[in-house]
Design a protein around this nucleic acid. Structure first.
Lengths: 232, 232
DNA sequence: CTAGATTTTTGTACGCGTATAGAAAGTAGC
DNA sequence: GCTACTTTCTATACGCGTACAAAAATCTAG
């Protein structure tokens, strides 16, 4: 036994995280505040800060737990479909976490238990014939798209809940049809059109485009390393 | 003269917005707080709330001014390139605004003076042969990608400024090479690889994919409305 | 001149994340 | 048992966005 020194801890990181889970479960995302959480754990707010660096780190820990519990989809063999399937799984996992928006600013999804997603996407991209560097690029691009979609989705949800006058109505009302004919053409249908879920379509388009020419950078086509090519 | 009633206003919306501009210019984004701004304008914090609904609306007003001042790029004729050029211009405009992240949650970029971007992208998509609904979808997909990239960019910048131990180092250090071979293969190069700017590549891939089959939804190809087809 | 009515401004207060300083509660060396 | 040292926890405080209530300053009607 290594015999620890110092004042013995009253609470642990795990205590905090599980209390946070309980709190969210019982009273919703909004009530997860450091003060409220401290009460739940039975300490002072500042005591928490000895176990987590800040609230964002706490949320990342929660996300990590969440990611660990996620089931993984069966993956198709065809590389493009495989990339898409993994990305869609990632998207679904994230879309279910209400406080996700506060965490998306943190890092490119590097919660340890979520690493399966980038791993799988990058691997599939390599299988599709991209060199490793390009595969990493492809993953990041997919990640940006996914994170952006999730953010917009959360924002739309929030807006719907708040029921504020949407601002868009106002915009479309005073729209100059000469200068902006297409938007004028869409007109009141904007709300309806933008309520639809287009993540899948966008993702498939993105994957197709990424694999089209090996993510060409302006130069000629790029070397392939796999036998799976079927485009061109 | 319509003769107004009620206590005469001491400040106006325009006063507030221009003071906010001054403040940001002089002391940086962080010092734009409602309290500090009130001091700058010469009122109490709560007086501001009679002219703007909340801080987010204030930021949107700032963004609108900013967008009005942006110069617009010359657009190529070829529809795909035209979409890309407009999107890149939009991206550049946004990337220059440091507090942009606080605003991206608001709406799909519908500040009145920024409407030129969606208009142009949608119009180019229609010219490329997409039906209007699909063109709107295409714009939104591009928007999600763009917003996500901007968010990630801002987060990376912030991380670099703070100089925190990045968390990624820690992740890659304790990485299970059996379960995550591709990530292990990338290893320490992650930092370097993800520091590169891939927005343009991603965007071109996305546009190519979107125009490839008229944004197919799983069914057969979609009707075209223009004479500009050149793929298939 | 006075009594609403209306609009804007002010004052006070709440809960938030968290910086900082110091008290509490242990172990280790003497 | 006393003193140092280490770790953890507590107390206090700051600035933030903003809800809510009351006050101030104007117009209109009688």
């Amino acid at each position: 036994m290594p015999a620890r020194t110092g004042r013995p801890p009253k609470i642990s990181r795990a205590d905090i995280v599980s209390a946070a889970h309980r709190l969210i479960e019982a009273e919703g995302t909004e009530s997860l505040t450091m003060r409220r959480l401290a009460r739940e754990v039975g300490t002072t707010p500042m005591a928490l800060y000895h176990h987590v660096h800040d609230k964002e780190e706490l949320l990342l820990l929660l996300l990590d737990d969440y990611a660990a519990a996620m089931s993984r989809p069966v993956l198709p063999d065809e590389p493009g479909e495989r990339m898409a399937a993994a990305a869609i799984a990632m998207h679904e996992a994230l879309a279910g976490v209400p406080w996700i928006v506060d965490v998306l600013r943190a890092d490119d999804l590097l919660s340890v238990n979520a690493l399966w997603y980038p791993e799988t996407i990058i691997d599939a991209a390599v299988r599709a014939g991209l060199p490793l560097e390009r595969a990493v690029d492809a993953y990041r691009i997919i990640w940006h798209y996914t994170a952006g979609e999730i953010t917009a989705r959360a924002a739309a949800l929030r807006r719907r809940e708040e029921g504020r006058p949407t601002y868009r109505r106002q915009v479309f009302a005073a729209l100059d049809a000469e200068a902006l004919p297409r938007l004028a053409e869409v007109g009141g249908r904007w709300e309806e059109l933008t309520a639809r879920d287009t993540y899948g379509e966008g993702l498939r388009a993105l994957v197709a485009g990424l694999l089209l020419k090996g993510l060409a950078t302006g130069g000629p086509s790029v070397k392939r390393s796999g036998p799976d090519d079927q485009m061109d």
